[in-house]
Each structure stands twice: as structure tokens, then as C-alpha cells.
Amino acid sequence: MQDNILEIHNLVTSFASDGRKDRAIAVNGVDIAIPKGSTVGLVGESGCGKSVTSLSAMGLLPDNGRVESGEAIFCGRDLLKLPDRELRKIRGNRISMIFQEPMTSLNPVIPVGKQVSEALRLHGGMDKETAKRKSIEILERVGVPEARRRYDNYPHQLSGGLRQRVMIGMAMALKPDLLIADEPTTALDVSIEAQILRLMRTLQRESGMSILMITHNLGVVAEICDEVYVMYAGEVVEHADVYALFRDCAHPYTRGLIASLPRMTPKGQRLYTIRGTVPNLRAMPAGCRFAPRCERACKRCWEEKPLLQDIGNGHLCRCHAPVGTNGNGGEGNG
């Protein structure tokens, strides 16, 4: 386990909402390991807790969020127990983040170049001039044309793709060990998406950093990830390397996700959809959390919560009756 850059163990995160005493559990006992130099995908629908997992580890939860238990080991230190001052030295320096919406994630009233050089001055201890020179270099590196001129531009003067390049430049400025990318291409056009993913790949090859790619887009996962965690309703339901996952996924939810990808199908065939929606965090089913939406659910699935089990070669799955086995939940008949 020495070669993992970040290990999250049994993370539980809850949220308070106005006027309610009970807290909603958004992340419920998540374990994730990110090997050095590799790209790990964290996949799931909106609201499954994938973003919350990364924000918890970075200490960036909104005010109403709180980590209940768990640890996040980065270079032998638990990020969740570090005092804020120490954690700040890691943030933006050794672990950086890029976010989904590059329009709102960049400060609208500060020129983009200044926003890039900010981290350089803070962590790199550079003076204004050096930081500016370095920032322009970085902007050029991430493919911002006319970087010298763009340095003084405000975010709204750039296109979405350029803004995301700036975000990446900002995050890569200090050559972090780990880059957490939270839906980095969701708001972009498909052609721009490919460019951005290619850029991330190149940068990763050069610096040897690890990437945690948070996305709901399996296409992105197939493109860039080495291994994948699939999350559903605050829990990891499946974990495998990317080939195993696409070749023989075991969890019905993952299968549903893959089946609902549009592809070259004969005319007239319907696109697969998973019925229903993610259950309310305050009213989770007692058994398997996916049971209400699962086509294969049987009595046992409703009553007994499945555990995350190794189904061979380190392929983990949280299901009583993984796809590919012909069991339908053991004893009970559905």
C-alpha cells in the first residue's frame, strides 16, 4: 500500500439543512485508494456523493457539511485531522483541484493571470514579477494563445474552453502530486472536451502526477482512467480497473450506466434508461440502496444490505447477485 498517493478510509460525511435536527448522510463509509501516477475515476449520478467525497478530503465542505468519521491519508498524514494551517500548505500546492464550471469557478473581477500567479506567490514564494513571468509560461503550456495578452483578461472575456485551460494552469502551477478534477469537461462542447482531456493526459505524462477524475460521463472514464470507482447513493458499489469494468461489470447499476450510453445501435432500438431516481438521503431503503430501481432485485435485496465483496482479481462489487453470476439473491425468489 506504499504506492498510493491518497487513501480514503471509511469516510462518512453529513449535511444539516435548515430547521431540521437530523443530518443527511451524503457519503456513507467510502474507501478509495489512488495509486501514484495513475488516473482514478469516480463515477455516479448527480447527488451520489462523489463531489462531497473529494471536498471532504480537502476540507472544503460548505458550512453545513461535516465529516463524521474516516481518514484521508496523503503522504502518511491524515488530511482530516490536520489543522487548517497545515492543510492549507497542501491545498493548491501538492493537491490541486479543478472544478466543473469554469465561468463561476474563476473570480469574475480579478484578471485570470493574477489568479494563476496567486498560488505561485503563496506556495512558491515568488515575487510579483517572477510569478507573472511563470504564470504566462504556464498559460502558454496549457494552450492559451497570446498568453501575455490574456494574462490581463477577465474570465468573461475568455471562452469556456480557455477558461478551463486557465483553471488547469492554475491547478498545475506548482506541479502537484495529485489533481482532483471535478467534472472538468461537463460544461464544455464535445470537441473542447477531447482537447482538455488530451491536455490533462499530456501534463500527467510529463509530471507523473495522479488524477482523481470525478465525472458522471463514462465516455470520459473510458478515455482517461486506469481504474474506476462507481458510487451510488453515498456508497461505493463497484471498483475495478477500467477494462474489467467495461468488459464485465458486475453491479446492475454499473451495467445500467453502461447500457444507457448512446451507441451505434440498429434503428428503432430504444436507449436504455435506469428507472426511478436516486433515493432521498433521509429515507434510504433498509436493504440494498439500489433495490428500488434494480430489475434483478429480490426479497433478500430489500431486506439485507449487501457488502462490498471481492468477486475476483480485486474486482469489488456491492451486490447479492452480481451480473454474470446466475444467482438471483440466494434463497429468496423475487
Partner: peptide
């Protein structure tokens, strides 16, 4: 509550 505040915090400010 804006996203860019989270970005700023993620830089370690």
C-alpha cells in the same frame, strides 16, 4: 457561496 471562493480556498489561501 460562489464557486470561485471554493477555488480560492482550494489554492490554499
Amino acid at each position: 457561496r460562489n464557486d470561485y471562493i471554493r477555488t480560492a480556498r482550494s489554492k490554499g489561501l
